[in-house]
Computed example of a mutant assay.
Amino acid sequence: MKRVVVCGTKFGQIYLSALAGGPFELTGILARGSPRSAGYAKEYGVPLLTDPDQVPEVADLACVVVRSGVVGGEGSELATALLERGVHVLQEHPVHADELARCLRAARSAGAIHHINTLYVHLEPVRRFVEAARRLRALQQPLYIDAACSVHVAYALFDILGRALGGLRPWAFAPAPQAGPFTCLTGTIGGVPLTLRVQNQIAPNDPDAHLHLLHRITLGTEGGNLTLVNTHGPLVWSPRMYVGRDADDRFDIEAEHLCLPSATVLGPERAPTFREIVGTLWPDGVRRALGELCDAAAQGADPLRQGQYHLTLSRLWLDATTALGRPELLVQGAPRPLSAAEIS
Rank of each mutant, 00 (worst) to 15 (best):
Y15S: 05
G69S: 10
E43V: 09
V55H: 02
R336L: 15
G244E: 05
L313W: 09
L123R: 08
V130R: 05
H96D: 00
G45N: 12
P181A: 10
C103N: 08
A18Y: 05
P47V: 09
V70L: 09
R336E: 15
C184G: 01
D295T: 10
L49C: 12
L329W: 12
P56V: 13
V70T: 07
D146A: 14
T9W: 10
A38K: 15
K10Q: 13
E328R: 14
A209G: 03
R85P: 00
H96M: 05
L281Y: 09
L49K: 09
A156M: 10
L30V: 06
G267P: 02
T227W: 01
A289N: 03
L211S: 06
A101P: 08
C103F: 04
T322I: 11
G69K: 09
D208A: 00
L136E: 05
D146W: 12
G224H: 00
G191F: 01
L78R: 08
L311W: 11
K42P: 10
L161H: 09
E254L: 09
P181H: 10
T118S: 04
K2Y: 07
R105D: 03
A340T: 09
L329P: 02
A296Q: 09
L168W: 10
V6K: 03
T221Y: 01
A107Y: 00
I14A: 10
L290G: 08
L78N: 05
T273I: 12
I113Q: 01
Y242W: 08
G333S: 14
D248S: 04
G307L: 07
G285S: 10
I116R: 00
R108Y: 02
L168S: 13
P303E: 15
R240P: 03
D248M: 05
P47N: 14
H310Q: 11
I253G: 02
T231C: 04
Y40D: 04
A112Q: 03
A41E: 11
A107L: 02
V6Y: 06
A179S: 12
D248W: 07
G75M: 02
D60N: 13
T195F: 02
P170W: 14
P175D: 06
Y40E: 06
V95I: 03
E43Q: 15
R275E: 11
V64A: 06
G224L: 03
N117T: 01
R36A: 05
D302E: 14
Q201S: 01
F274N: 12
Y242S: 12
T9F: 00
P35R: 12
I113V: 07
V151L: 15
E292V: 07
G300H: 13
N230K: 02
L211F: 01
A97S: 03
Y309C: 11
H93E: 15
G233W: 06
H232C: 04
L136C: 04
P268W: 09
R127I: 05
L104A: 02
L316H: 14
G28Y: 10
P268G: 11
T50V: 14
G22V: 08
P170D: 15
A107Q: 02
G233L: 07
R3F: 08
T118L: 03
V130I: 15
Y15H: 07
G21Q: 13
F274H: 15
S34M: 06
A172I: 11
C103T: 01
